[in-house]
Write a protein that binds this DNA or RNA. Structure first.
Lengths: 156, 156
DNA sequence: TATTGTTATACTCTATAACTATA
DNA sequence: TATAGTTATAGAGTATAACAATA
């Protein structure tokens, strides 16, 4: 019942590992008083200056949810709203320096955590794992008709 | 810039795959009007009948948060509170038949999703992946002084 | 006194519906 | 008319502090 030798199926193992990785980001974000959705917001802003509407699509939230999300981030000084030049109804959202450095910190710590999780594997096995994981990601992206490298929107 | 051939590091790849797996569970839970925390609640109850206090520890939430969480699940008919025999201050929480069947459904669909994600890998590679993932999990659990198979508390 | 659980309160996060301003 | 964004409202989810009942 409590042995440490039982083998996990690839499905169970991958699920457990995924929750562990997700939880790791959650804890690192919480260290900086960031919820996961605030973290995702900062993450998508690292290489974009989207409108509120585009943010709603990127984060898969209603536009009314984006209003509050961005307002709270702005109140903390992590993002700013700038009027869009072309359309006076529109605003664009971008990171402040503080927001950028905060998301960089959280990302770095998270990546260090994942690196530490993998550190016990011999280098050759890490390479093997990276290869297998890449193939799963590519196959899954293809199955859903998504270009993996242009739609990536998670920090880390 | 948008090619599909770039290789991911093991860290980036594992992070992306983890978010994909997590998002899959989130969507399957949402199909049944379950938030992730409600899903985790039902998940931990599948093989336990904990007190409110124990639930707080298992879900890493304050006991006052558990009160509302369990109340909402109880209102939906997914769990019941039963008085604890030994300590009259205590209540124990358990799944109803409806709660059990709901979590079984969500789990089954989620597992089918992960299975589908892995289906493109040749069987031998799936075995290899399972082995590598198991080794990462065991090493990480050891690093944190946790017995992997008694403390598992995620559905799936 | 200490512990178990709830309540009161305040905040974040989310969606729906109604609204304003601009296109 | 249609679109971009906000506001009003309601509810889930969370923590802190104070409380009642029991140990």
């Amino acid at each position: 019942m409590a042995g440490s030798e039982r083998a996990l199926s690839s499905v169970d193992g991958l699920a457990q590992l995924s929750f562990a990785v997700y939880g790791t980001l959650e804890r690192r974000a919480a260290e900086r008083e960031l919820s996961m959705i605030q973290t995702r917001l900062l993450g998508v802003l690292r290489d974009r200056r989207p409108t509120m509407n585009e943010l709603a699509r990127l984060l898969e939230l209603d536009k009314s949810s984006i209003t509050g999300l961005v307002a709270r981030a702005e109140r903390r000084g992590l993002v700013v709203r700038v009027p869009s030049g072309r359309d006076r109804r529109s605003v664009q959202v971008e990171l402040t320096d503080e927001g950028r450095s905060l998301v960089a910190e959280v990302s770095a710590r998270f990546e260090a955590d994942v690196t530490a999780m993998l550190a016990r594997l011999p280098s050759a096995d890490r390479g093997l794992l990276a290869d297998l994981v890449s193939r799963v990601l590519v196959a899954d992206a293809a199955r859903r008709g998504i270009d993996l490298f242009t739609d990536a929107d998670e920090p880390g």
